[in-house]
Design a protein around this nucleic acid. Sequence first.
DNA 1: GCGGCATTCTATAAATCAATAGAAATTCAG
DNA 2: CTGAATTTCTATTGATTTATAGAATGCCGC
Lengths: 208, 208
Amino acid sequence: MTSANPVTTTIQRKETYAQKRARAIAAAASVFAERGYHGATTKDIADRLGIRQGSLYYYFKSKEEALEEVCILALRDYVHAMEQITSSSLSFGEKIFHIVHSHLSSYRDDNEALKVHNDQRLYLPEERRERIKKDGSRYRVMLEDLFHQEVLNGTMPADTDCQFAAQSVIGLCNAWGALIIRDPLLDVEDLTQKCSTMVLNGFHHQHP
Amino acid sequence: MTSANPVTTTIQRKETYAQKRARAIAAAASVFAERGYHGATTKDIADRLGIRQGSLYYYFKSKEEALEEVCILALRDYVHAMEQITSSSLSFGEKIFHIVHSHLSSYRDDNEALKVHNDQRLYLPEERRERIKKDGSRYRVMLEDLFHQEVLNGTMPADTDCQFAAQSVIGLCNAWGALIIRDPLLDVEDLTQKCSTMVLNGFHHQHP
DNA sequence: GCGGCATTCTATAAATCAATAGAAATTCAG
DNA sequence: CTGAATTTCTATTGATTTATAGAATGCCGC
């Protein structure tokens, strides 16, 4: 055997293509989130990367491909977190809490990819949209199943509409997510607590 | 007195400028809803009206003005409906029901102006955005006050965060609204029932 | 029918933008 | 150092788009 492969043993002094491309996707996410897909220009993205407009095409075949990549990125971590939570041994209430927390946190910490997925994905042509749709549906179905399980357990009314419940949780989180991005003062921990409580028990209204 | 004003007594054989402009705003709303503000062209709007691109400028000084008008239109009816409901003698639960119903219905019936307001208003420059912001806030505050009143009545926990509650109801309705527009099969009456119940009592989860 | 006003059209200016081709620069192994 | 591969740059093309100016058309009262 010859000496160990320098690629894996040498300290990396230069970013790989994949790493630089990942930064390009993040830059695209940021710009798309701020100005929308059509409102953003390839120059905006290039500027954020410190390269020229034309150079961007070394990483993307088209602006459209950049949007698709942003959407794929957004869903990857998002779905992964959901898988971790639903397969854990937490109680139902705790799972909901973690799901909401993970969802809201991603708006604060991550990049703006999730917002771009929510707001701009419909501007993708059919074919590209289909490709990312699967992951989005998977997320919704996992949440749906979580509710469904709870109905079978008897800890939720038998007539609960689990599709409605799942979609509502997602919608609520996305609505607050949009606000979280725009208002740095919003406290994710506090919102997580309030959203989970609301989902499970509403605002506790008592008939007078 | 001379003969009665023909404008008011004669059967209208021709649309007034205001009416035609209103149709232009509706066309803009429709196109903006479908393609987004930046993705829509003035030609798209003109096509939907059956006029030429240049002729559109008889009704708008700019594309930007068209977007502002769409947002103003969206909020006018929206705020008006809220005023009617909150000032009525309905019970709290009924009011929430009507508010949700009015909100969701507007996505089904009206034009797509409300969706445009939600998704595209941030692309307006500061000054124009400020002008429409007031109406949006008014809606939220009215809803907030409704919750606040209920806390004072003692039919809701004293520590209820009314701002959170109001924003959540709006967010939930907007999330479902976006789905309603895309899926004609969704039943607004059914969704209204489920959304109101969820807001008031959550999904009735019982600790096992 | 005529004069004036309202409405729409044609044609075009000016700016912007995505995408490409090929040259330059950088990096790196031998 | 040298040559090849990678990465970035320059320069440009072609298409699109907003907005304007001025001409043409339609409409209405008289």
